[in-house]
Amino acid sequence: MSKTEPTALERFTNGILPENPIYRQFLGMCPTLAVTGAMKPAMTMAAATAFVLVSANVIISLMRGLLRPHLRILVFTLTIATFVTIADRFLEAYFYAMSKELGPYVPLIIVNCIIISRCEICASKQSVGVALADALGMSLGFALALASLATVREILGSGSWFGVTLLPAGWPHWTIMILSPGAFFTLGLLLALVNWVGRRRAEAAALRARIKG
């Protein structure tokens, strides 16, 4: 019995909110907490992750007919590690200051569960177009999640957004938001917010369905 597999469009829209890698799947938390102290490093990390995710998904999808079951994780890891090295060297060459700020978190993209799980769930089974859409959707979802966190932390912690000062000079900087406790609190509270909104919408949809039927 074959199950109809999600189309490219479904894969794309799934990754943004319904199966958001951070808020729904809870994958890739390490960079989320680490680089979201400000928008610039967060967006650089999102771009690097997007590059690796898209490249890995496309390459794995091209190879999907050749993968042996017990060696596939090895192939995934080899591919991902290669693209991460390329991304890391590129950042070091052209964005040196940002590369120093991101530090070890760019190579840590290798063990970012999002990428391996997308290779396993989608790229190794579906065509290049679908894998590409999936990667783009997940990357967008990841970037949105990082942006939501970084916005809160940067505005409260430094009074700026993308380095542009927004709050008046009299506002005291909540430095704790830039440090690690702030990361944990912000993610926990935003997660609760997303859950709450999701539940309210599900309740409203159920209510509407009952009224109609």
């Binding site: 690690s180 702030g182 609190f185 609760a192």
Partner: peptide
């Protein structure tokens, strides 16, 4: 625990308090 916070939510907040302690 409030419904929305159950699971990872409250765990993260507790982790934040632990992080403050370790500071």
């Amino acid at each position: 625990v409030p419904h929305s916070l159950r699971g990872p939510g409250i765990a993260l907040i507790v982790a934040g308090i632990l992080a403050m302690a370790f500071m």
